[in-house]
Design a protein around this nucleic acid. Structure first.
Length: 548
RNA sequence: GCGCCCAUAGCUCAGGUGGAUAGAGCAACAGACUUCUAAUCUGUGGGUCGCGGGUUCGAGUCCUGCUGGGCGCGCCA
């Protein structure tokens, strides 16, 4: 960032000097040392406008470049690109920047404290969280961290769908299992929940309610069981998420919407605007007027409201709570709801661009090289809890984040468990631990740590050191990219390349065994590496053990 | 049938808003510890970026038509 910006500013200065209008200049890392350390393709973009050859423009720019900090060793024009070869001492600036900013290195205050809400997981309270929820959870939490990193005030929210037929079915399932456990005749509901956990809840309910519950009329009994089952499951979910490193600011219940009369209110707004109509005894929302493919029912012919109307009310409430941006993270099976959700927000009078829907694709678990079978119907879902118990929080979070949300994710349990270099989590953490170890050794050798922060960084000139510094320089740009593209997986790729570069450096150059000026400079580089790995892993929510 | 996502090395995947010679990891093979953590490093081989058109100085990236896979298309949530 800091060096790319320096070079971009030099180009901008030159463009001003030669009277060329241009507001944005991009400077990039190169893919090969032949092309220098940094490169720019401005000349191509300008050539279209100016109707001159890229070479001519590049030449003009290069001839007018200034270099107040004397960082530039050589500038080459090659195939129209402007390639910068920097002096080694330029890179010391990156280390200085990191030593100064520390835990803030890479932060931007773009959000300026604006309120953003990210709603994710939002699993029904009808069973334990499964691995799919794990992906949504990790994605949402890391995106939230990234938004905070960019200066936003983020609220993490979990929407609890505590009403409707699913909850009734849950109560019926629990009741049936209780009867079964008590040796009473029972009939299992047709679409009931078959998971083993229903028996656990049934057992708990037997202990909690005793035999009195059978004296209640069935309706009352089911009401009690519904509350009990729901609360039990919510508590499981809350604990699973906490152990997964996620804490929600708000658990928002659908029943709250009903209590506040928000469904009615949202409905009235749509009606007053003339966006509703009656057909076949139901009331419809003319969502096609706002780009949806078909109109949707809001009130069913039996007078009850649809889940969609509750969702509209929910989003009305979100906007009223004053968020400048609302982000919903949904599994791929809900992607079809995007147009209607956007339509409803528009109909309510809000800017649909402030509502962002992020979709993530399915997770497939692999063990021993083959897919783990999962059947929702038979209740054979692998739970998030089981996964956490097996691979741990760090690996779970890292692996869930590792892929583009738009791509399906193959989660290799064996790899996540492996304590070897094959496991990217360990690979990155190990680099961090090595940095820590060096500082422990330094203290033992009575190195004056303070001098690390005031040393002459121009001693860092080995290509391995320069390579490492170029990667460190790139951290803020990588984050910006992850932020704008809602792509947390960029962090994992970045950290792996940083760790790789550090391990190379560590293996072929001596650090503490080196003569004084060089030793201090290298320790400064170690410090910077340690700091950036820490910043990155903190955002992902993966721990940074100092010893491994 | 319609909509969304995906297709890049043997496998799993990266490839910012179009830039140069398409990159990692794993697997395979060959090497490196009397040394600050070998949970590491170095090197080698491996590609028609699913297929066909188009846009332009330039396409893995954008547009379009196919093919294959996943997910949706309810007065369920």
């Amino acid at each position: 960032m800091i060096l790319k910006k320096y070079l971009a500013d030099r180009i901008l200065d030159a463009l001003v000097k030669i009277n060329i209008q241009c507001t944005e200049v991009v400077v990039d890392r190169t893919q090969s040392p032949d092309f220098g350390h940094y490169t720019s393709s401005v000349s191509f973009n300008l050539s279209r406008v100016l109707k001159k050859s890229p070479y001519e423009i590049a030449k003009n720019i290069v001839e007018n470049l200034t270099d107040p900090l004397e960082f530039i060793n050589k500038v080459e024009i090659r195939n129209g690109f402007i390639n910068f070869f920097l002096k080694e001492n330029a890179f010391g600036l990156v280390i200085k920047e990191i030593m100064k900013e520390r835990a803030n290195y890479g932060k931007f205050n773009e959000g300026q404290g604006k309120k953003v809400q990210i709603e994710f997981v939002s699993a029904n309270p009808s069973g334990p969280l499964h691995v799919g929820n794990g992906r949504g959870g990790a994605l949402g939490d890391v995106l939230a961290n990234i938004f905070e990193w960019f200066g936003y005030k983020v609220e993490r929210e979990f929407y609890v769908n505590d009403m409707g037929t699913q909850m009734n079915l849950l109560a019926l399932s629990v009741e049936a299992r209780m009867k079964e456990l008590l040796g009473m005749p029972f009939e299992f509901p047709e679409d009931g929940y078959h998971g083993e956990y229903i028996k656990d809840i049934a057992n708990l309910a037997i202990g909690r309610f005793g035999s009195d519950i059978w004296n209640l009329p069935q309706e009352k009994r089911l009401e009690r069981l519904k509350e009990f089952a729901k609360d039990t499951i919510l508590e499981w979910q809350r604990r699973d998420l906490e152990d997964f490193g996620i804490r929600f600011d708000c658990w928002y219940k659908e029943s709250t919407l009903h209590e506040k009369g928000l469904l009615k209110e949202a409905f009235e707004i749509l009606k007053a605007c003339g966006y509703t109509y009656e057909k076949d005894g139901a009331v419809w929302f003319a969502s096609t007027r706002f780009g949806d493919e078909k109109d949707r029912v809001l009130v069913k012919s039996d007078g009850s409201s649809t889940y969609f109307l509750a969702d509209i009310a929910y989003h009305l409430d979100k906007y009223r709570r004053g968020f400048s941006r609302i982000i919903d993270i949904w599994g791929a099976d809900h992607h079809g709801h995007i147009p209607r959700m956007k339509a409803s927000v528009k109909a309510l009078g809000y800017d649909p661009n402030t509502l962002e829907l992020i979709i993530y694709q399915i997770v497939h678990l692999f063990r021993g090289g083959s897919a783990v079978r999962m059947s929702k119907r038979a209740g054979e879902m692998v739970t998030l809890r089981e996964l956490l118990d097996e691979v741990g929080k760090d690996a779970a979070r890292y692996f869930f984040i590792m892929r583009d949300p738009n791509s399906q994710l193959d989660f290799d349990i064996d790899l996540a468990k492996a304590q070897s270099s094959n496991n990217p989590v360990y690979y990155v953490q190990y680099a961090f631990a090595r940095c820590c170890s060096l500082f422990r050794q330094a203290e033992a050798r009575e190195v004056e740590i303070e001098r690390v922060f005031n040393c002459d960084l121009s001693y860092l000139k080995d290509p391995l050191e320069v390579d490492l510094m170029i990667i460190l320089e790139d951290f803020p740009d990588m984050l910006r990219n992850a932020f704008y593209n809602r792509a947390p997986h960029r962090l994992t790729f970045y950290l792996e390349s940083l760790a790789k570069s550090f391990h190379s450096f560590y293996n072929s150059l001596r650090i503490l065994q080196e003569e004084e000026p060089v030793m201090y400079a290298r320790m400064a580089l170690v410090f910077a590496t340690q700091q950036v790995i820490k910043n990155g892993l903190d955002i992902i929510g993966v721990s940074t053990p100092e010893k491994m």
